[in-house]
Amino acid sequence: MKKAAKFAFVKSIPIMLGYVFLGIAFGLVLQKAGLGPLWALLISACVYAGSMQFALVGILTGGLSFVTTAVMTLFINSRHAFYGLTFIERFKKMKKAYPYMVFSLTDETYSLLCSMARPRDFTDREWDMATLFVSLFDQCYWVAGSVLGALAGQLITFDSTGIDFAMTALFVVICVDQWKHAKTHIPALAGFACGIFFLALIRSANFILPALAAVAGVLLISRRIIERKMEDSSL
Score class of each variant (00 low, 15 high):
Thr161Leu: 07
Glu126Lys: 03
Ser78Asp: 02
Ala182Glu: 02
Cys114Tyr: 01
Ile225Arg: 11
Tyr141Thr: 02
Thr131Ala: 02
Val10Thr: 06
Leu220Val: 08
Thr69Asp: 09
Gln178Thr: 01
Asp124Pro: 01
Leu199Ile: 00
Tyr83Met: 13
Ala193Cys: 14
Val47Gln: 02
His80Ser: 11
Asp138Lys: 03
Trp142Met: 11
Thr168Trp: 00
Arg223Leu: 07
Ala166Trp: 01
Arg228Trp: 00
Ser78Pro: 05
Leu85Pro: 12
Ser222Cys: 15
Leu132Asn: 07
Arg90Gln: 15
Tyr19Met: 13
Asp232Trp: 00
Arg125Ile: 00
Ala8Ile: 04
Asp232Val: 14
Ser104Gln: 08
Ile186Arg: 09
Ser233Thr: 13
Ile163Gly: 08
Leu60Ala: 09
Phe54Asp: 07
Gly34Phe: 05
Arg120Phe: 03
Val47Pro: 10
Ser115Asn: 15
Ser78Asn: 08
Ser104Phe: 03
Met129Pro: 05
Val172Asp: 01
Leu64Arg: 06
Gly18Ser: 14
Met116Ser: 14
Phe91Ser: 10
Phe192Cys: 06
Ser65Glu: 06
Leu56Tyr: 05
Thr69Tyr: 02
Gln178Asp: 09
Pro14Glu: 08
Val176Glu: 07
Gly27Asp: 02
Leu64Met: 12
Met116Leu: 13
Cys194Met: 15
Asp124Ser: 06
Leu17Met: 15
Met72Leu: 15
Ala49Trp: 02
His185Cys: 05
Gly162Ser: 10
Thr109Val: 15
Phe26Ser: 03
Pro14Ser: 09
Ser160Trp: 08
Gln53Met: 06
Phe26Trp: 03
Ala152Leu: 15
Pro99Asn: 14
Cys175Thr: 00
Leu212Cys: 15
Gln53His: 02
Met129Glu: 13
Lys92Trp: 08
Ala55Gln: 07
Lys95Arg: 14
Val176Asn: 08
Pro119Glu: 04
Ala214Pro: 14
Arg120Met: 09
Ala33Ser: 14
Lys96Gly: 09
Phe165Lys: 12
Thr109Lys: 03
Lys92Val: 03
Phe7Tyr: 08
Tyr83Thr: 09
Glu126Leu: 01
Phe75Cys: 14
Asp159Cys: 11
Val143Ile: 15
Phe122Ser: 06
Ser51Ile: 00
Ala49Gln: 04
Gly58Asn: 11
Ser65Met: 04
Leu74His: 08
Ile196Asn: 00
Gln178Arg: 04
Gly18Asn: 07
Ala144Leu: 12
Lys2Cys: 10
Asp128Trp: 00
Cys140Trp: 05
Ala169Ile: 04
Lys92Cys: 14
Trp142Ile: 04
Met167Gln: 01
Asn77Ile: 02
Asp177Trp: 00
Lys180Asp: 01
Leu112Cys: 13
Ala166Glu: 04
Phe7Trp: 02
Ala166Val: 11
Cys194Val: 04
Lys183Thr: 03
Leu22Thr: 13
Ser111Asn: 10
Leu201Gly: 05
Glu126Arg: 03
Ser111Met: 12
Gly36Ser: 08
Thr123Pro: 08
Ile208Leu: 12
Glu108Tyr: 01
Ala213Arg: 11
Cys175Asp: 00
Trp127His: 05
Ile88Ala: 15
Ala5Ser: 13
Met167Ala: 05
Gly149Ser: 11
Gly217Thr: 11
Phe26His: 04
Cys46Pro: 01
Asp159Pro: 13
Ile76Met: 05
Gly145Ile: 06
Ile196Cys: 06
Thr184Trp: 10
Ala188Arg: 02
Tyr141His: 09
Cys114Gln: 13
Leu235Lys: 10
